[in-house]
Design a protein around this nucleic acid. Structure first.
Length: 552
RNA sequence: GGCCCCGUGGUCAAGCGGUUAAGACAUCGCCCUUUCACGGCGGAGACAUGGGUUCGAUUCCCGUCGGGGUCACCA
């Protein structure tokens, strides 16, 4: 009996690998085109770190007119979540990062290199496992989990490197006859790689991000096909990325230490190895230390968090690009209005170590991004967000024409207002502009320097009677408030007051604060002239009268 | 513990043997002829540490310390 017969015994129905090699032709792409992929488990959950990888992978592919595809790695049934693929697809869509190929929903897919779901590729993995078996490069291993556990404990106790390798690889040198006999007896087994590696030899690897890294060769006889008949990540990675024509594997750096194994696998399979780019994780500070952003502990680890908060997708991506390439910031300064697509990302400029996640920075970016939107765009985005997450805001926004006026305050000019960094800020930001809201709840009047009820009332009264003319232009309106200040005993210019503060109890700014508070219930608002224009005469008068009433 | 990677202000980071050690966010102050948000100007704030190599080290080498990753029939 020889390897070939043993292989036939194990995988009697597997096809020759030439079948697959011919079926999946080399991709016809322009010179230098890069093929990348995102290969998550179908957990339905997309981590910020994954989104980061996707942004990079897709960008690199697009830059070179290549392909970015989605492959679902569902070889571990324990990880599977119902509708997991849908959740992932939705997240990618939320950020405009749809793949060119791969799954399009739970069961459908597009592209010529499928199936794009690993559980559907079983026969393919078997063909390649058989191929290795035939050459004696893989073998059936009959060790039970208990046996393995016992071995590991021995190794630990003796303080030697744990694992299934060398003399510990008990079934490695079983003769084909012995193996066949065990199989005939019905003993369960898995398929292991017969690693030719030696731990005392080094391999050199050039990582596109990490640079040159030396590792000991892999000498572990790792599992290729598990007891459930599905491949392990490593084996599937080699087979799939070869067949699917991946040129650049862009993944988290937790995989860096598997590179020797993966390179070995590609070599034994006779495949050309892809280039690797290992991305450092996004970290979070905790108790002075750093740790990876955690799915369990940190809500901001889930990409859905940002859509829920209403942070625009461009802002999240821009932040990620900021972390990815430090020259992005300079580029953005040079090209404030350019599309993100125009930025050329360089893998070799990526940071080797993980950056601490900075929500403040992301919000700052979002603020700038939103400030460039038109009122119309803001309306649409805020409305779409409100539909899903905020019923009250949705109701406020029903009157589109009015909402557009509100959003148009101090917008569309050279120095647009920067006060919204996420859609969830909007309600708080605009609610006082609506009479229904304003009068609908208990109004607080936080008067500042001028708080004496009589004085406040006097200012308000005189303003309505002698100065308020809705048709006034801004300058006239402004001058009238100065007149009002003077009439009620305050300095008409702030500068004059600053020179001689003892001369008046306050200045025009203090007077206008009274009006502002009466009008809006707030001390800080956007330009008051514009607010009054938007509110309109009726509302302004009503509000000013209500404020006086309140003082009785 | 073995193996691998990393260590510049609070954070993200330029820097590649000789620099007043950039910039951004955050922070503080002043200005922007009324607040706030912007914007402008300015301030404070860093090369983990000990040895080498060198005329000269943030930069090169070694140790120490610190941080991270990885050692599954999980990905």
């Amino acid at each position: 009996m020889d390897y070939k017969e043993l292989a036939d015994k194990i995988f009697p129905n597997a096809k020759e690998i030439t079948y697959y090699e011919e079926k999946y032709k080399k991709r016809d792409l322009p010179e230098g085109a890069i093929v990348t992929r995102y290969a998550p488990s179908p957990t339905g959950f997309v981590h910020l770190g994954s989104l980061y990888q996707v942004v990079i992978a897709k960008k690199v592919a697009k830059q070179t007119n290549g392909v970015f595809f989605l492959r679902i790695e569902d070889t571990d049934q324990k990880r599977e979540v119902e509708n997991g693929v849908t959740g992932i697809l939705q997240s990618l869509k939320d950020f405009g990062l749809e793949p060119d190929e791969g799954m399009t929903d739970e069961i459908h897919e597009k592209g010529n290199y499928g199936p794009y779901k690993q559980s559907l590729r079983k026969d393919i993995y078997e063909a390649y496992a058989k191929y290795l078996l035939e050459q004696g490069k893989a073998y059936p291993c009959f060790a039970t989990p208990e046996e393995l556990e016992e071995m590991r404990q021995k190794q630990e106790a003796a303080k030697i490197r744990p694992g299934y390798y060398g003399v510990w690889a008990k079934y490695r040198n079983l003769s084909v006859e012995e193996a066949a006999e065990k199989i005939d007896k019905g003993e369960s087994y898995i398929i292991r790689l017969k690693s030719p590696g030696r731990e005392d030899r080094k391999i050199k690897h050039h990582d596109l991000i990490k640079g040159n890294v030396d590792f000991p060769e892999n000498d572990q006889d790792i599992v290729l096909i598990k007891a459930d008949g599905l491949p392990t990540y490593h084996f599937a990675h080699a087979v799939d990325d070869h067949l699917m024509g991946t040129t650049h594997v862009i993944r988290g750096d937790e995989w860096l230490s598997s590179v020797p194994l993966h390179l070995q696998l590609f070599q034994m399979l006779g495949f050309k190895a892809p280039k690797y780019a290992h991305i450092a994780p996004i970290m979070k500070e905790e108790d002075g230390g750093k740790r990876k952003l955690s799915k369990r502990k940190d809500p901001e680890a889930a990409v859905s968090y940002y859509t829920e908060m209403g942070i625009p997708k461009e802002a999240v991506i821009e932040y990620l690009l900021n972390i990815a390439n430090s020259n992005f910031e300079a580029w953005r300064k040079q090209n404030p209005d350019a599309s993100l697509d125009d930025f050329e990302l360089q893998l070799n400029k990526m940071s080797v170590s993980g950056a601490l996640f900075d929500i403040v920075k992301i919000l700052d970016i979002a603020k700038t991004v939103i400030s460039k939107y038109t009122a119309e765009h803001i309306y649409e985005e805020a409305y779409r967000w409100a539909e899903n997450y905020d019923e009250e805001l949705k109701n406020l926004l029903q009157d589109k024409a009015y909402a557009l006026k509100v959003f148009g305050i101090e917008r569309g000019n050279v120095k647009p207002r920067k006060d919204i960094s996420k859609w969830s800020d909007v309600k708080e930001n605009i609610e006082y502009m609506y009479d229904s809201e304003f009068f609908g709840r208990k109004i607080e009047y936080p008067y500042q320097k001028i708080a004496d009820p009589e004085k406040v009332k006097e200012i308000l009264q005189k303003y309505i009677q002698n100065y308020y003319v809705p048709e006034d232009d801004k300058q006239t309106w402004f001058d009238k408030i100065k007149d009002l200040a003077e009439e009620t005993g305050f300095a008409r210019e702030v500068k004059e007051w600053k020179k001689e503060p003892e001369k008046w109890p306050g200045h025009v700014g203090d007077v206008s604060t009274v009006i502002r508070v009466a009008l809006t219930g707030r001390t800080n608002t956007p330009d008051m002239y514009e607010i009054m224009q938007v509110l309109g005469k009726e509302s302004v008068i009503k509000r000013l009268e209500k404020a006086q009433e309140f003082l009785k």
